[in-house]
C-alpha cells in the first residue's frame, strides 16, 4: 500500500494528516536509533498511541501493529510485526540501500462495527458498513533514513574547482553535469579562489562568499521536478546529508539548508578571527 499524506479513507483513521478521530496520537517516539552493520540494519523504536478506541481494540486482541519499511531502490517493502512500547527490529542482509522510510501502522484483525468507535469524527456518525479485518485504522508519520557510504563523504569531496576562460572577469559559475559539482572560475577568479583555500581565514571567507550561494544554487537544482541527477555522486551525497538532518528536498528553504550543510559558515568567520 502506498500511503500519501493527502490520502482519503472512507472510514476513520487515526493519523496526524486527517481528522478521522477527534483526538489521539499514533506513531513512533521521537528517538529512532538506526545501527548499520555488515549483517544488516538494527532499528530501536518506541511504538506509542493514545486513543481510547485504539486502546480498547488492542486490549481485545483486535488490533495488529506493524512497521512498514520501504526502500524503493531495493524493492524492499514489508510490514513487519511489532509491539507497543520499545522494541528492536532487525533487517538481515543488505536489503536497504539509499533512501528508505519507516511508518507505524495498525490494522484490524477482526470485524468492528463503525458505531463502536466512540472517538471517531462526527462525519462518520451517519453510519457505514462494518470494518473488515485488514482495514487500516491508524497510521504514523513517515520517517526517512539513508543507508550507504555517501552520508559519510566529506562535503568538499563533491566539489571540483575548474578553470573556465569563457567566464567574464571576476565571475564564477557551477555545472551539475559530472559526478562532482564543477565550480567554474575565470582566469582571474580561479587563482583568487585557489589562494583563499590555502588559509583558514580564506576558507571561512570562501564558505560564506562562494560556497554558501553555490550550495543554495545546487539545492534549487535538486528541487527542480524534471532534473534527474540521481546517478551522480554529488546528488547522492547531498541527498544523504539532507536526509540525515531530517530535511525534505521538496519543501526545503535553500538558505537555511545550505547553512546547515556547511555547518553554520558565519560562525566559522568568528572562530577563524
Amino acid at each position: 500500500m502506498r500511503i500519501l499524506d493527502d490520502m482519503l479513507f472512507p472510514h476513520p483513521v487515526l493519523w496526524s494528516q486527517n481528522n478521522g478521530f477527534r483526538f489521539g496520537t499514533f506513531g513512533f517516539g521521537e528517538m529512532i536509533d538506526v545501527i548499520e552493520s555488515v549483517d544488516g540494519v538494527t532499528i530501536h523504536l518506541d511504538m506509542e498511541f493514545q486513543n481510547s478506541d485504539i486502546e480498547r481494540l488492542s486490549s481485545e486482541g483486535r488490533l495488529g501493529l506493524g512497521v512498514k519499511v520501504q526502500c524503493e531502490e531495493t524493492y524492499f517493502n514489508d510490514v513487519l510485526p511489532c509491539i507497543r512500547g520499545p522494541f528492536e527490529l532487525r533487517i538481515v542482509g543488505r536489503k536497504l540501500a539509499g533512501r528508505w522510510t519507516l511508518r507505524a501502522i495498525a490494522w484490524l484483525t477482526g470485524p468492528v462495527r463503525l458505531s463502536d468507535l466512540k472517538t471517531m469524527d462526527a462525519e462518520f456518525e451517519t453510519g457505514g458498513p462494518d470494518l473488515q479485518p485488514g482495514t487500516v485504522i491508524a497510521i504514523g508519520d513517515e520517517r526517512t533514513f539513508f543507508s550507504g557510504q555517501e552520508k559519510h563523504a566529506p562535503l568538499e569531496s563533491v566539489f571540483e574547482l575548474v578553470l573556465d576562460e569563457s567566464l567574464p572577469v571576476g565571475r564564477y559559475s557551477v555545472s551539475f553535469e559530472d559526478d562532482r559539482i564543477q565550480l567554474l572560475a575565470g582566469h582571474e577568479s580561479h587563482p583568487i579562489i585557489a589562494e583563499l583555500r590555502g588559509t583558514r581565514q580564506g576558507r571561512a571567507s570562501l564558505l560564506n562568499g562562494v560556497y554558501l550561494p553555490v550550495v543554495q544554487r545546487i539545492l534549487e537544482e535538486m528541487k527542480q521536478p524534471g532534473a534527474d541527477h540521481s546517478g551522480k555522486r554529488w546528488f547522492r551525497v547531498l541527498s544523504a546529508k539532507l536526509i540525515e538532518r531530517g530535511i525534505s528536498i521538496s519543501g526545503l528553504d535553500t538558505l537555511d539548508a545550505a547553512q546547515q550543510l556547511l555547518k553554520e559558515p558565519l560562525q566559522r568567520m568568528r572562530a577563524e578571527e
Partner: peptide, 16 residues
C-alpha cells in the same frame, strides 16, 4: 480500487 487497502498484513488472505 486498491487505494487504502493494506494487502501486506496477515489479516488479509491470499484468496482475498
Amino acid at each position: 480500487q486498491g487505494g487504502g487497502q493494506l494487502f501486506e498484513v496477515p489479516a488479509v488472505t491470499n484468496e482475498q
